[in-house]
Design a protein around this nucleic acid. Structure first.
Length: 211
DNA sequence: GCGACAG
DNA sequence: ATCTTGTCGC
């Protein structure tokens, strides 16, 4: 896939910078999250597969899984991951027979150069609260660790947290759409420890569908 | 100008 | 993300 020219990338970045001006329809209350889903994408040459895994908090188990495959519509460009993954991800979530109260996305939310990472777009497109969960840092610096959480600082403000989970690699969590920074901790506590199982499952399923 | 750079 | 075998460790 060819790299888009500078005119196109700068235009996309301009529009991306402005989505932060769109206020969410509502902010989710951590206690209202009964059902959530995780979405991830895997690739195989010219094929991409997005998996949406619906999880019920009460039963603590997978409720449903949907896979949507297609051609990657855009190359990987740091900061513009949403152009490559958001379309298939949102399609996979929409394919679920029941819509989740919250979506966990493999990637960053507002912990992004323009505060508009993949998770922001997926949540906005679905008009559903979302949170970004990444395995590595894209921007910002890590602040002082406090109770397992260390703030991701960007231009003087906190845009997310580095979550230390035992001796494993830390997670980088940030709000996507319709989730307050202050709600992140409480929501995360309801999802169990370590890298969210629902995202591990989405990774397994999307990869398996390409074989 | 140079290095960094989610998946 | 993906290409790839064995290997160190719990």
């Amino acid at each position: 896939m060819l790299k888009p020219d500078t005119t196109l990338t700068s235009f996309i970045k301009q529009m991306q910078s402005r989505i932060v001006e769109i206020p969410p329809t509502r902010y989710v209350e951590p206690g209202d999250v009964k059902c959530f889903c995780g979405v991830d994408i895997s690739y195989k040459t010219d094929r991409a597969a997005a998996a949406a895994v619906l999880w019920d908090i009460r039963s603590d188990e997978v409720v449903e899984t949907k896979i949507v495959q297609g051609e990657p519509p855009f190359p990987y460009v740091p900061g513009l991951l949403f152009m490559r993954e958001a379309p298939l991800m949102t399609a996979a979530v929409k394919a679920l027979s029941k819509q989740p109260d919250l979506v966990l996305v493999d990637g960053h939310g507002i912990a992004h150069p323009r505060r508009a990472g993949l998770a922001v777009f997926v949540g906005l497109a679905l008009d559903t609260p979302s949170i970004g969960v990444a395995k590595s840092l894209l921007v910002g610096k890590i602040g002082e660790l406090k109770e397992g959480f260390a703030p991701i600082l960007l231009n003087g403000s906190t845009v997310g947290f580095q979550v230390n989970v035992g001796r494993r690699r830390p997670l980088f969590v940030s709000p996507g759409y319709g989730v307050r920074l202050e709600s992140i901790r409480e929501i995360l506590d309801r999802l169990g420890d370590g890298f969210p199982k629902v995202l591990l499952e989405a990774d397994r399923m999307s990869r398996a569908s390409l074989r």
